[in-house]
Amino acid sequence: MAFEQPACRVCEFTLVSRLFCFSCNALQPFPLEVDFFEVLGFPISFEIKSAELEERYQQLSLELHPDFYGSAPEAEKRLSETATAVLNTAYNTLREPTSRAGYLLHLLAQKQKLDERSLPDGFLGEMFFLQEALDELLESGNADELSGMRDEMRKRQKDIEADYAPLFKRLKDHPEDSEILQQLQTHLNAERYLRRLLGRIPA
């Protein structure tokens, strides 16, 4: 996918973020359908260094902060508010691997019809079994077994997360390969069930 670098509406400097020009400090009007990678100024890719994301977010949220536009014209004031809201949504979506993978898949799979309920074979039955087992553990209050189950589920979550990067990498070489897209969707679906199960285990 081509990553077009738009220019600042005031100084024509190439923009890093679609929301703000770091060269002349001008707020940028942005289209409603702006994607979250453009918002934070990263290429559309799964691999983002979290330290860089964090730094860019801090930088932008400071520059866009509505407090600095208190005496600005009404339109600028409103723009700083919507830009801040979009920035926060973008950051919250991209910082965590599973939600970033889900968002990126949504961007890349737009034209393809994926099976949104797909799961690995036998997975649903296993989740039902584990949920029932968890009921019993919660009733008995066995702390060791509960924490054992939590560790096991977290490990499986981590295993899923570890697969995102290689799958998206393969997708770069074979764009629109529906099998890879579907595999990603299956991973995301399975993760949701694990998350739900983990949510029931007290910390």
Partner: peptide, 13 residues
């Protein structure tokens, strides 16, 4: 019938 909702991770039998 065993079904699940990937939207939220619910499982129903």
């Amino acid at each position: 019938g065993l079904v699940g909702a990937p939207e939220c991770g619910d499982v129903m039998k």
